[in-house]
Design a protein around this nucleic acid. Structure first.
Length: 452
RNA sequence: GGCGAGUUGGCGGAGUGGUGACGCAACGGAUUGCAAAUCCGUGUACAGGAGUUCGAUUCUCCUACUCGCCUCCA
């Protein structure tokens, strides 16, 4: 099946053609590990998780790399204020990230390199850039000479001159040109640092991805992804570094960027008070599958608005589907579902196809499709499982009361009983010749104890 | 200020140069002691203006508005 992906670099949807069909290679910019992942961090993880799953259905092998940025001034600040070591913080935070992303159904990438494990590769790459005249060392810094790379700004559609005119660039005495960006910077005694030809210091933010991508995927690979906030400057800088250091004309063939997440129509930010982490939601009792479903219900290139209403709808839909899947045997993913995903990860369209399967009552195909989307595994998750509470005694009692009521035309006792059952979270389904009681999601057996 | 994305019915959300995607909600009907659930059915949405066209929601241009990035926050 043909897969089409929107390539930011060309601003168009293109037929995906891997460099090596035996080994599709993708790199996604991962988190800076200094705290819990917030909901916005989850979006790229889920978007590229879907891409990873899709690619795996079409190619024999996919190599997915997502890094951990464990050297960064935010981490340094966190260490300084908490008195804990950097290693302790990054180890703990990295595991939190994996736990939280696992809870929302994200598969782990094949490689999850930590920046601090690739310092030597970064130094080597910077040396190469300096040797080639693309970078220079000054006052303990190494800087990339942006004017040396003619294609700088092409990915994000900017020109160097326009950006200078915008005057939002940092001017520093050690820079030849205000646009030049840092590859390596000096560390003082309190700041983590590594020895280098330019003195003890630490890498700039962008070089890690160039070095790790090269080490694990080679100088050129298929897909590079991340949030669209990374398009500039991060990805622009990565391209400049990698292409100049590796002598290639491109770093990745396809650049993919997801749009940002909002909460109730506004940017999620601490100042607006609508900032929360994935863990916060999970602790509030929002199942990971629901978080994932809401995320997938908006196409990745559109802003995604997290709302309470969507959360509720997603949960209702999933409960309905889980009930249909329970008892079915897992079948095969229908072509319509895969086709939707193959069209630039059109997850909302894929969800439509799942609705169709649900409508047709095709539980086995639904199961397979839900698994592909990552909201279903080998069994229905516990939170959605139909309760196995034995209500047969109540069923019998209710049936006989109902039979009496039908005779006497006095339904008051029956209605009272029904109210109690409903209050206890029991779904009451009356048929002509009987009654079914099903424990609903909010079933509370304690409330039935006062029943006659 | 620069760059970019977007504006589809009550809400969410795909898609298409020409027969009202889909989900939720709503409404009508069947069923029901009454409800619920279920089933059947109903709705003439494509920001505004101009242009291209036999025909535009879909293409082009302009306007308005929203959002994002450029700045530690994805």
């Amino acid at each position: 099946m043909d897969i089409h992906l929107y390539n930011t670099a060309t601003r168009s949807k293109e037929l995906f053609a891997p460099l090596d069909p035996e080994n599709v290679r993708m790199y996604v910019c991962g988190p800076t590990v200094y705290d819990r992942a917030h909901l916005g961090n989850a979006r790229p993880v889920l978007v590229f998780d879907i891409l990873y799953r899709l690619l795996k259905t079409q190619y024999p092998h996919v190599t997915y790399v997502r890094n951990f940025t464990d050297v960064d001034d935010k981490i340094n600040a966190r260490a300084a204020e908490s008195g804990r070591s950097i290693g302790e913080i990054t180890a703990e935070t990295s595991q939190w990230f994996l736990d939280d992303m696992g809870a929302i159904g994200a598969l782990e990438p094949d490689h999850m390199p930590r920046a601090t494990a690739y310092i030597a590769e970064m130094v080597e790459m910077i040396e190469g850039l300096i040797d080639g005249g693309f970078a220079y060392a000054k006052e303990g810094h190494a800087l990339f000479r942006v004017r040396e790379y003619a294609r700088y700004g092409k990915l994000s559609g900017r020109s160097v001159d326009d950006m200078i005119a915008g005057a939002r660039v940092e001017v520093a005495p050690y820079k030849e040109d205000p646009m030049d960006f840092v590859l390596w910077k000096p560390s003082d005694a309190q700041t983590p640092g590594w020895d280098s030809p330019w003195g003890r210091g630490r890498p700039g933010w962008h070089i890690e991805c160039s070095a790790m991508a090269k080490a694990l995927l080679g100088p050129q690979f298929d897909i590079h992804g991340g949030g669209n906030d990374l398009m500039f400057p991060h990805h622009e800088n990565e391209i400049a570094q990698s292409c100049c250091a590796n002598g290639t004309d491109r770093m990745a063939n396809v650049w993919m960027h997801n749009e940002m997440l909002q909460v109730e129509g506004k940017k999620m930010s601490k100042s607006l008070g609508n900032f929360f982490t994935v863990r916060d939601l999970l602790e509030q009792g929002v199942p990971g599958e629901v978080i994932r479903f809401v995320m997938l219900s908006t196409h990745y290139r559109k802003p995604m608005d997290w709302t309470e209403k969507k959360r509720e709808e997603a949960e209702a839909t999933l409960r309905k589907w889980y009930a249909q899947v329970e008892g079915a045997n897992e079948g095969k993913v229908t072509e319509a579902v895969t086709t939707a995903l193959a069209d630039d990860l059109n997850t909302p369209q894929a969800i439509v196809e799942l609705h169709q399967l649900s409508q047709k009552g095709d539980g086995s195909a639904l199961w397979a499709a839900m698994r592909l989307l990552g909201v279903m595994g080998d069994a229905v998750p516990g939170w959605a499982a139909v309760s196995d509470a034995d209500l047969s005694a109540y069923e019998a009692a209710f049936s006989s009361v109902r039979a009496d009521a039908m005779q006497t035309k006095d339904f008051s006792k029956l209605d009272a009983m029904k109210q109690m059952l409903i209050a206890a979270g029991v779904e009451v389904k009356m048929r002509k010749d009987g009654v079914d009681l099903v424990a609903g999601p909010s079933f509370d057996p304690v409330k039935l104890e006062s029943m006659p």
